[in-house]
Design a binder for these strands. Structure first.
Length: 410
DNA sequence: TGTCCACTGGAAGGGAGGGCTT
DNA sequence: AAGCCCTCCCTTCCAGTGGACA
């Protein structure tokens, strides 16, 4: 053991108490400060269903980090604690992960199937059949089924409102069971895309979660800090600072907790036993960079090539590019890398994706006779991104590549 | 006022990859 | 083994468009 590389870490003191997960967004504490009203409202809607009345569906709106998911999961925990499992089945699906009709039906259905051999396979059956299977299983279970669909707008955006159409009218086909839906979305306008019937059924009840203000964020941080750290670890001024930073970003509690957690981790790594305001600033930078690194790293090869093309152009002094220019550079890079380039139509979509990820800035702009196209700019630090891209096998070959500088004659 | 550029972004569809059913 | 089904990633085709310029 002597001289072992892990030796120094084995006895290192951590400023965290045993469980730092209390600072992760997935952790649901015993109480949710400043969301009592929403919890009660949701509980009262669902309680109606418990008494055997027709269950209302609920739509919950609110920006990221306003506690939507936490409230919905919290109420789910309370159901479980209330010991009414013979009457209520409550579950939660994140539609960003499960984003197809088949996937939703399969997911819900499988919760009612204990026997492994009978489980609905992840592919192979027709969607219609999976729906029928699901309906039978729910009815057999003969209880109130509450299905929470988080990021429901992603599901509708990707697969249309077919799933919701089925799920909102499933009660007509059930004899012993009842289904109630909770839809969670950060996009207030998404219901405009729904079939009017689905729309009215889905939002029997509507709740809007306001952003937290700095004081409320402070309370939330205070609550979690007490769970995560010993008293006195956090210097005065740290929590107000984090609360203020997060309040600037539309009152995002998730971000506030991330900042606190990462600040703690930075303090740990430096072997300090206090969290200071300086560490919060560092944590802020680290979080921002980590986000970019992760986004770039997990990009598909062709998207990486597009991004690399944009960055290289920028390095030779061309800041603003059109789709055509990006496509040209991208095609050259593809050839260098020995890959067949995708069509320009496909690249347009990939550019839009990069824009949505915040890695580039793409605005549609008309140049009159010069045509109508996107004006594209990278919005991340070029050296950072290049370093990450260089780790990719395919792209490493292109390290020496320099784009041709357009010799525009004036 | 109309023209025309360089795309944009919707629609349809192909085919590969997964897997079930008969 | 043949026939289906669903999803993902692309391609092909194309009508539509904001605004500088003639």
């Amino acid at each position: 053991m002597e001289g072992n590389i892990f030796q120094p870490y084995l006895h290192a003191e951590s400023i965290f108490r045993e469980n730092r997960d209390v600072l992760r967004p997935s952790y649901i504490p015993d109480s949710l400060p400043h969301r009592e009203r929403q919890i009660n409202q949701l509980a009262s809607v669902l309680a109606t269903a418990l008494r055997g009345a027709a269950p209302s569906n609920v739509m919950i709106f609110g920006k990221t980090g306003t506690g939507k998911t936490a409230v919905v999961k919290y109420v789910g925990h309370e159901f479980r604690r209330a010991d009414i499992e013979d009457r209520v089945e409550y579950f939660y699906i994140n539609c960003e992960i499960v984003d197809t009709p088949y996937g939703v039906f399969q997911n819900v259905g499988n919760r009612f199937i204990q026997d492994f051999d009978e489980r609905i396979p992840f592919t192979g059956l027709s969607t219609e059949r999976v729906y029928n299977l699901l309906r039978r299983k729910i009815d057999d279970a003969a209880r109130v089924v509450v299905i929470a669909l988080d990021e429901i707008d992603k599901l509708v955006y990707k697969s249309g409102d077919d799933v919701l159409y089925h799920l909102t009218k499933i009660n007509d086909d059930l004899h012993q069971a009842k289904v109630s839906l909770i839809g969670i979305s950060n996009d207030l306008k998404f219901t405009e895309f729904l079939d009017p019937r689905v729309k009215s059924r889905l939002s029997d009840e509507k709740m809007v979660f306001p952003p937290y203000n700095a004081k409320e964020l402070g309370d939330i941080l205070e609550q979690r800090a007490q769970l995560a750290f010993d008293p006195g670890v956090i210097e005065e001024g740290v929590i107000p600072l984090i609360a203020a930073l997060a309040a600037q970003e539309h009152g995002d509690a998730r971000r506030a907790l991330d900042l606190l957690r990462v600040s703690g981790e930075l303090a740990d790594r430096k072997g300090r036993n206090h969290i200071t305001e300086v560490m919060v600033q560092r944590a802020k930078n680290k979080l921002e960079l980590d986000l970019v690194i992760e986004a770039v790293r997990s990009l598909p090869t062709h998207s990486k090539l597009i991004l690399l093309g944009i960055i290289l152009q920028q390095e030779v002094g061309i800041a603003k590019l059109t789709t055509g220019e990006v496509y040209d550079t991208y095609s050259q890079l593809c050839r260098r890398a020995g890959l067949g380039p995708l069509t320009q139509r496909r690249v347009t979509d990939l550019i839009s994706e990069l824009d949505m990820l915040g890695l580039i800035n793409a605005k549609v702009k008309s140049f009159g006779r010069g045509g109508r196209t996107k004006e594209i700019q990278s919005s991340v630090s070029a050296p950072d991104v290049k370093r990450i891209l260089n780790r990719d096998e395919v792209l490493r070959e292109l390290r020496s590549y320099r784009p041709k500088v357009q010799t525009t004659l004036i």
